[in-house]
Design a protein around this nucleic acid. Structure first.
Length: 853
DNA sequence: ATAGGGTTAG
């Protein structure tokens, strides 16, 4: 502008006067020329300044004002060029101002057909519609656009990516390359995002190769996307490799690694990453804290999570819906509901996720009423329940056996069309199965059109849990016919189904089969097998299975150790149990309550009450289960006073005794004949602790009464209880009859028991005992012969027999038997489980066979 | 380029 003659001339008047000539109206004078030039220049200046003004309005996001300015320019008859439309459109893209953009689009069509076919404008329009996620318009523009270029490709790939059409995005990437355009470092992140979402590591690696070839590796966006992609595909080593090789990282890069760790369950690593970030002095963002809180929530790391929350406050981070939800998730998962609700109340914007988190938090802490209360509040806010909330609620109903809540939830799903969601369907099937309504479970299962692997597995597990291997196997074959290949979870259920039904060989066979088709048994497979074998009396095989598991390189966890300890109990393998205890002491920093409880149980049941007490005493923060285990140990060893003392102590420690506490303490009393104490316990249980006695509790009291010889009172109790007397109770009476020499009643009861349990050898033995007591040896022999025919013979030298997954006892062995100690011990142990007393059994250790002539 | 809640097996 500075070089223009008009504005630079210090004295234009002078030069004009010099050149002035007589006026000719028909001739263009110099003045005219000058005037014209002046006018043109005025236009030009106007043009320039308008353009600058408009452009800066665009950059400030005042798009509508910019458009108005262009209208003014039109009035001034200024020419509107492509660059003006381009600038306006760019402003709209920036602001995602779709409707203004559409106005401009309309003007373009109206004012200049030539612009509409201008590559620059066409691309800008396409970008506008793509960025505003107007899929149809963007796509039709893309199809009709005269010339495609890198930018239009980038727009369309990015659009597909944002809309979740990840395959389309990758197709676009390929097509772009095929048509000779090289994706730039703006396109690559989108392609990588699509790979990550699709978990398509092969394609991702291909893109990585392209990145290296093109030299985009130094671009933080590209490299961060690579980290993210590897993380999403679960290849964390490569994510870390890319991360480590990066020269300039930013907070997104760090966040991406953390997110990768959290997604793959490596919460410790994520937390470590977070601390590294702090050391590096990188300012955490909402994303950082949100992932950190997820990791803390997953690990139950209360201190860490609280630090995260503190950082939100200190850093003045805005409490976005996502960040707020992450905080609530953390507090809910660690059970700090007051804090969760405090954050909840302070959040301005809440969405379904936020509500769901607070609801499932209460559901998890068992406060169903509060949860439902919030559910109704949520409805007042006009928010609808979504499938995630329902799945959570159904899962909670399943865990607590709350059929009423479960049905209500199911009805809600039907009314709102949520049952077609497979995840919801699985949770409903599971709920009905766990509430023992297999018929409903099956109906929901059958009516779910789109069955996925988890749904099949849920139904399989339902059958397996009930020990119905036939049904399980049936479904197992059907899923394969319907084209769903079973995974390790499915195989595990089949194995469990057999084990629960006592079919050990079939279970082992299934293990071999699954291996032969290439499905590798995992920790749960082995643990199920170990505990199933132990429960079926194959403790030695359970221990061998454990060794197989270790050979397969699978590290035992607490659950597998617990089932291994149960194998030790089965075998009375004190030495092996001690070895496990030693292993735990060496390899586990703090022995958790479940492990300590199992150890107490193992030591007690393997005969070493002192060690049991030692483990109990050295366990800090004793919870109810370990008290229960210790009481049970005392009961087993006939130390009722100690058991009672513990029962009182746990209450002093602020714990509330549960049904198991009463079972064990009652056992202790009935074992030692502490009738008054036992009756008082029973009374406390009902009136003070408001627990409903089960058959087992009645059994103990019946046993106590019978032992005192108070058969009448025992009968009265049986008549008054809300159950049909089971074999254990009748067995208690039977034992009393034995002691009281009530031979007729003894015969009657044993016959009735045989009717109830025709495969339980103990009942036949009891009957033959009764005959033996009456000196009717022929009948004794008949019973024994019948047992042999039925295959119910006991193992020679041993005093127990096993049928259908349960151990059944009765007759003892020879007192001179070399293993008599062990036999006697096993008997005592089983006596406890069968409601017989230890003294009773040991006094009957004299074998029937010996006294039989 | 990065972030929050859901279902199955011991």
């Amino acid at each position: 502008m500075a070089s223009l003659p008009l504005s630079t001339s210090p004295n234009p008047q002078l030069s004009l006067s010099k050149l002035s000539k007589p006026t000719d109206p028909h001739k263009l004078t110099q003045t005219h020329v000058a005037k014209f030039q002046q006018n043109a220049k005025k236009h030009q200046i106007l043009d320039q300044s308008y353009f600058h003004h408009m452009s800066s309005l665009c950059k400030q996001g005042q798009i509508q004002e910019a458009v108005d300015l262009v209208t003014e320019m039109e009035f001034e008859n200024l020419e509107i060029g492509a660059e003006i439309y381009g600038e306006l459109l760019q402003g709209c893209v920036y602001e995602r101002a779709l409707s203004t953009g559409q106005q401009i689009h309309a003007r373009i069509i109206k004012n200049g057909e030539c612009f509409a076919r201008n590559e620059y404008i066409e691309t800008k329009l396409l970008i506008l519609y793509a960025k505003c996620n107007v899929y149809d318009v963007a796509y039709s523009l893309f199809r009709t656009v005269g010339i495609k270029n890198v930018f239009s490709w980038a727009a369309i790939i990015g659009l597909n990516c944002r809309m979740g059409f990840h395959e389309e995005a990758l197709f676009g990437f390929c097509e772009m390359l095929e048509s000779g355009f090289l994706p730039d470092n703006f396109v690559v992140p989108n392609a990588l995002k699509a790979c990550g979402s699709l978990q398509c590591i092969k394609f991702g690696k291909g893109v990585h190769g392209y990145v290296v070839k093109m030299g985009f590796g130094g671009c933080v966006f590209v490299a961060s996307s690579l980290v993210d992609m590897y993380g999403k595909c679960g290849v964390l080593e490569d994510a870390k490799k890319v991360f480590d090789s990066m020269l300039d990282k930013n907070v997104v890069t760090w966040n991406s690694v953390m997110v990768g760790y959290v997604r793959n369950g490596l919460n410790e690593e994520a937390i470590k990453m977070f601390y590294d970030m702090r050391i590096e002095g990188i300012e955490p963002t909402q994303v950082t804290i949100s992932s950190f809180l997820s990791a803390s929530a997953n690990m139950g790391a209360i201190e860490e999570g609280k630090q995260g929350h503190a950082l939100v406050i200190v850093g003045g981070l805005e409490l976005s819906t996502i960040l707020g939800s992450s905080i609530i998730n953390f507090y809910s998962k660690v059970g700090l509901m007051e804090e969760a609700e405090l954050v909840f109340s302070r959040m301005i914007e809440k969405d379904a996720v936020t509500w769901n988190l607070i609801i499932s938090g209460y559901v998890q802490t068992g406060d169903i009423d509060r949860a439902l209360d919030i559910c109704s509040q949520m409805r007042l806010e006009n928010l609808r329940f979504d499938s995630v909330i329902l799945a959570t609620l159904m899962s909670a109903s399943a865990d607590t056996g709350n059929l009423k809540l479960g049905r209500e939830g199911h009805c809600y799903c039907i009314r709102n069309g949520l049952e077609s969601d497979v995840v919801v369907a699985s949770s409903i099937v599971d709920m009905y199965a766990k509430c023992e309504r297999l018929d409903f479970a099956r109906r929901v299962f059958d009516s779910t059109a789109k069955k996925d692997l988890v749904l099949w597995n849920t139904m399989l597990a339902a059958y397996a849990e009930l020990g119905l291997p036939g049904e399980t196997l049936n479904l197992f074959y059907r899923m394969q016919l319907e084209g769903v290949p079973p995974n390790v979870v499915a195989w595990n259920s089949v194995i469990v189904g057999f084990l629960k039904n006592g079919q050990v060989n079939e279970a082992k066979d299934m293990l071999l089969q699954m291996q032969s088709v290439g499905v590798q048994p995992n920790l749960i497979t082995w643990t199920s097998l170990i505990s199933g074998l132990a429960k079926n009396g194959f403790g030695n095989e359970a221990i061998i299975a454990f060794q197989h598991m270790q050979k397969a390189g699978i590290k035992p966890n607490a659950v597998s150790i617990v089932s291994l300890l149960s194998a030790c109990i089965d075998m009375a393998l004190l030495q092996y149990g001690k070895a496990i205890h030693g292993y735990l002491t060496r390899n586990v920093h703090v022995i958790s309550t479940p492990l300590a409880t199992s150890l107490v149980d193992m030591y007690a049941k393997c005969g070493n009450i002192d060690q049991a007490k030692n483990v109990f005493d050295t366990t800090i923060n004793k919870e109810l289960p370990i008290y229960n285990a210790m009481i049970s140990s005392y009961a087993l060893h006939g130390q009722a006073m100690e058991a009672l003392a513990l029962y009182r102590r746990l209450q002093k420690e602020g714990l509330e005794p549960d049904a198991i506490t009463f079972t064990n303490t009652l056992y202790a009393c009935s074992n030692t004949g502490l009738a008054n104490e036992g009756l008082e316990l029973f009374f406390d249980m009902v009136s003070k602790h408001h627990l409903r006695p089960t058959m087992v509790h009645y059994g103990c009291v019946v046993n106590l009464l019978s032992r005192c010889g108070n058969l009448d009172e025992a009968f009265r109790l049986i008549m008054g209880m809300p159950y049909e007397p089971d074999a254990h109770i009748l067995g208690s009476l039977l034992a009393a009859c034995r002691e009281q020499n009530e031979i007729e009643l003894e015969k009657y009861l044993s016959k009735r028991l045989i009717k109830m349990e025709p495969n339980n050898s103990g009942n036949y033995v009891a009957l033959s005992n009764a005959y033996a007591a009456a000196g009717r040896w022929n009948e004794v022999k008949t019973v024994r012969r019948f047992m042999k025919e039925k295959g119910l013979m006991k193992i020679p030298g041993c005093s127990w027999i096993q049928i259908g997954g349960e151990l059944h006892v009765f007759v003892a062995g020879d007192k001179s038997h070399p293993k008599i100690e062990e036999i006697s011990y096993t008997l005592a142990l089983l006596a406890l489980e069968m409601c017989f007393t230890r003294n009773f059994l040991t006094s009957h250790l004299i074998s029937l066979e010996n006294s039989c002539p």
